[in-house]
Each structure stands twice: as C-alpha cells, then as structure tokens.
Design a protein around this nucleic acid. Sequence first.
DNA 1: TGGGAGTGCTTTTTT
DNA 2: AGCACTCCCA
Length: 714
Amino acid sequence: MSDLLANLNTPQLQAVTLPSVHALVLAGAGSGKTRVLTTRIAWLMSTGQVGPHGVLAVTFTNKAAKEMTARLSTLVPINPRGMWIGTFHGLCNRLLRAHYREAGLPQTFQILDSADQLAMVKRLLKNLNVDDEKYPPRELCHFINAHKEQGVRAAQAEVYDNYTEKRVELYAEYENQCNREGVVDFAELLLRCYELLQRNEPLRKHYQARFSYILVDEVQDTNKLQYAWLKLLAGGGAKVFAVGDDDQSIYRFRGAEVGNMRDFEREYAGDNVIRLEQNYRSHGNILTAANAIIKNNRERLGKNLWTEAGDGEPIRCFEGYSDLDEARFIVEEIRELVRDGVSPTQIALLYRSNAQSRVLENELFTKNVPYKVYGGLRFFERQEVKHALAYLRLLGNPDDDTAFLRVVNFPTRGIGARSLENLQVTAHQMNSSLYNAAASLTGKAGQTVGAFIRLVETLRQETAGLPLPEVVEHVIEKSGLAQHYRTEKEGQERLENLDELINAAATFIDDEGAIGEGGALVSFLTLASLEAGEHQAGEGQGAVQLMSVHSAKGLEFDVVFITGLEQGLFPHENAVSEGKDGLEEERRLMYVAVTRARRRLYLSCAQTRMLHGQTRYCMPSGFLDEIPESLLLKLNKKAAPAPAYPAYVSFGGVYAEPAVAGGLRVGQTVEHAKFGVGVIVASEGRGADARVQINFGASGMKWLALEYAKLTPV
DNA sequence: TGGGAGTGCTTTTTT
DNA sequence: AGCACTCCCA
C-alpha cells in the first residue's frame, strides 16, 4: 500500500486518503486527475473500507471507463470486471437489463442511436401527417432530448404556445411509439433508470445500501438528469467523490451544466474541496498563457496551474495571408520538427470546426506527410454495418420498426413506397408493429412483404442455437447483403467492414465469456449502440494527429498547433452571438486547446479563409490578445500585415480587391463609432446604394450602408 | 427502381 | 465548396 501512495504530491495524497466524506476535487489540466480517481478507489479497497461490490464509478466516455478499469487492475489484485465502473449510459443500461420488468421494458429492449432516433421522428411526422418544415425533425429530437435531460416527460412538459403544444403532443406520440416498439433512446436510458429508482423504493434502498462510495469523473460535464441520478443513488449515505474542472467545461451546448459543480460543492462537499494545481504536463510558458486566457472568465471556482518544469520555449505565432498560406507554414514546420527527431504522433493539429481540416489535409498529402484525422463516421455507424445490425435486431425483436424499415427493401426486393405506405396505415390502425401488420396485407404488397417476413423467420430458425459470430455471418450472407455489395462497384470496402463485424462478434464473445441463452445477441447489439466503436480505423503509425479541439480533450502532445485562430471562427461567431456565456465557453475551449501541449505550442491564423465556398476576411482571434506579449515569438517571415489594405497573396501572385466606394475595399480594416474595428468582408451595390458587410468580431457581422455609416479606414 | 438535378445547410459530440 | 436530402422522370 505504501507503493500505492508513493509519488503522490500533497494535495493528491490528501484527496486519495480522505476519510469517508463527500468531496470535490478541482483537477486542473494535466494535474493527475485520473491517477487520483483510480488511486482513491484502490486505497479504499486495500484499506478494507469497501469491497469491489460497494464502489460505483461513473465516467462520460467508454474510453475513460476503460482507462480507469485498466489502471485500477494494475493497482489492486482484484478483477475489476465485476465492478460497477462505466459510463452513465452503460450503468443505466446494466440496471435496466437487471430490472427490465420493473422498468416496464421487454427483456430484449434495444437502444436507438441518434440516427435511429431521427429516423423514428421523421417516420412519426409522416404517419401523423405533420408538416416537417414547420416541425423540423432535428429540432424535434433536440426538443425531446432536452426535456428528457431535464427529467421532464411529455405529460409534465410546460406548454406556453400553440407551437410548443404541438411539439409536446409529438413528444408524447414519440414516447408511445418507443414503448410499442420496445426501444429506448440515449436520454431514455437515464430517465427510465432514474424514474425506476425513484418509484421503486425497495430497489432504490437496495442500490443505495449497496454502493457506499460513488466516484464521478468530469462532473463539469453532467447534465441535470445525471446530477439528479447521482443524488438519488447517494441518498442512502454513500459518499460521493467528484472530480472535475470547471475551466474545461466545453459541452454546455449539449446540456452540460457547469453549475452542477457549484451545487455539488454547496450541497455535498462543503469544505472538502481539494485543488490539484500542479501540472505535470506542460512547460511554464504554456501554462502562463493558459492561465492568462482563462482568468478572463467570470464565475470560476478558481484555480491557478503551476509547474516545476522551466519556462520552456516561447509560444510561436504565425499569421498567414490565407488558409493555404497557414497550412503551408504548418506543414513546413512539421517537416522540420520530424527531421529534428520529433515523432509525428506527438504532433497535433487542432481546429475549432472539422471543416477546417480539409486545407491542412490537402497540404499534408501534397507534401507526403502521413496524417490521421479523428472524428467522422464510426464503425457501427456505417451504412452496411447498420443494415446488418438491423437484420439482427429483427431477429431479437420483430417489433423494432426502425430496423424493419431499414432493411425491408434492402437489398431491393420490389417493396416500394406504395406498399410501405399501405403497411404503415394498416399497422397504425391495428396499433401494432409493421412486422405484425404485414400478415394482414393483401395483393402484391402482401406477397412481397410476406416474402420478407418469411426471410426473417427463416433466418431466425436457421440461426437458433448458433454461436454469435456464426449468427452474424449467416445473416449477412443469407439476407442478401453480402451478394448486394459483391455486385456493387464500390462494395469492396463495405464487404470488408461486414467481415469486420463478424470479427467484432467473435472478439465480443471472447471478451465477455459465456452469456446466457440468446443474451449474447442482445448484449452485442447493445454494445453496437452504446459503443459506436473507434473513430475511423485508419492506421495511425507515424502519423500527425488532426482533430477538433473538442476531441482533443483529455489528450496531450509534445507539439500542438492551434489553427484558425480568427475572430468568428475561434471564438465561433455562433457562440459569440449567444452572448457572454457563449464566449466564455469558447474561452474554455481555447484553454483546453492550449493545455494539450507539453513542450511546444504554435498559434496560427489566416487573413483570408475559404468558408462555405466564399472567401472570408478575418481578424485575428481576440484570444491571442489575452496572452502576454512577452511569451510570444512571432514567426511571420514576411513583413507584418500592411496597414490600409493588405495585398493578399493568392496562388499565382498578388491581387487587391477592387474598390467598392469611397476608397473602401473588401478586406480592408475600418473603424465604426459604435461597433469598433472590423474587416470588410463583402459588398453590394454602387454609389449611394453601396452596402458593405463588415466582420466586427465580437460585435458580430453587420451590413452597413456606406451613405450613413461613418467608417474610418484604420 | 434508380439516377440525375435541384435545394438547403453548414460548431463543437458522447452515449 | 461539399454534402445530404428530396423530387421527378425515364
């Protein structure tokens, strides 16, 4: 055990060995957060304060849960597999599977991912003859999820106008439909579980008594429902140990409430707040910059990172003429770094939005620098994989209409929109699933759909009793999917992915060991929804890492490039228009980005950028001004951007935008009495009618008539 | 049935 | 610009 606590610094040690109390650990970036969390669990167990049975540890991502489990097994000699360590969704799923009857769910309930949910909502709107332009499906999904995340059912939803009344009605219809089909969406997993525990006293008492220690990772990312769920489980005297960093809260946009952290401090932790401020990751200058940026945010719990490492290198800045120019600079630097012996995998290119990767990728590709892009389609979200899963889902639960519709005519078997419309009407009248209603169809539709039903029945009979990988293989082959992709021109890769799915099933069985009869398929399908799989399989060997700032959270690299640091892009204009809270979230995002770097940090921006097919003229991000000048090393090889209006270097040479009026040009920096300094990004009309669009950065994008607006060239 | 043309959107993302 | 989605026609 002395080993266990060796090498912890004072606050870390203090946190790990805290007595049986509620506590909040404010863990700055790179301060050993995961280490404290896992060591705390190990310490509690090895001192006999709790057995593996009494610990509940919650994370947000599967990756974090896996890492925790892995680290824990190196610290204590027990098998952590039986422990309740997992994501909020994973744990709720586990609980609901164990008590499916009490929760009012079929034993084989399936989980809808976001795409399935969207498809379901679209279908619902169509069946109910609701105008999907007036009620956009995406927006409706968001409406439903937001309500569930607030713990609000349709029956309790607040109605304040006709529009909302209709949406609440649709929410209720959606709930009914899910219940009929025996499927749950992501938010439902949590809400269902919460309601179950709330309603069912013996069950609640059981779990409250069982878990005496609850540990929460990344509390700043919890939403209201997750927080309520934790409080419910902790209601029997369990002690909650929450770890988080309010400065790294970057998921407000999807319901995370940083306020939960403050509430937790007030309601639970009290004086037991421990700050981990010593950073073991970055050199001094990088931390100083990060601190300087984040201190502009208000409403912080307060924290200041420090390091024993030296100042290290200055922070390198580059301002390109264009996004292409910026990309060229970056790739040149990367080549140099690699020549000097830096491993490409230790170099990260970060950007605010994924669309920015294109230029960078292009340049990397041209210069033969291997790279890997994170984000994008994941394995279980691929079309062919989802098709195969849909057949498998139908074997387990024929009432799953989403799965039914996905494959009823794929590969095509002559079932057109007309037949399906008939079927949907019949099903609606019978208040039954499509699968069930199929038997009542007459005429041609009855024949074609009937053939499909027989196919599924045959598949079910043929696969009964087979081991899971063989079930998967059989279904892929006999459903006609394999044949379909064999004849398709671009089908090769899809076939490989289907093979990969069979492998995944085999690996799954090996990992999970024997699972009860028929349970293997359900568990496998659950895995497919809950863990959509690694981002793009591509080889990462010796490749430079490209990702959005969001996906970089939790990672670290020797060298980090933060690109596209322009007003309107980072901070993003949509966020800025949300007001102060939006801007503060962008600033936290910047803080996360900066603290990813261990040794060297580059900040770059461009004066012009292709966005949505148009060239935009940009001002450097306001965040750049928040970093003390003394930390910066400006790397522009060319002279600093010229005053008045700069000449932009394009591919072949130098051009200047033609004058609009009054000597003003697109690209020119001007000052306005009210809005401040901005850049002219577009113009229309001439003479007295001339208007210009100006990017005023924090004050937004404005169209101004030249006749009235007083613009002074800067 | 399937492809081609036209339309609209476009921040971040896990489960 | 690029992509997803819809609609319409052969």
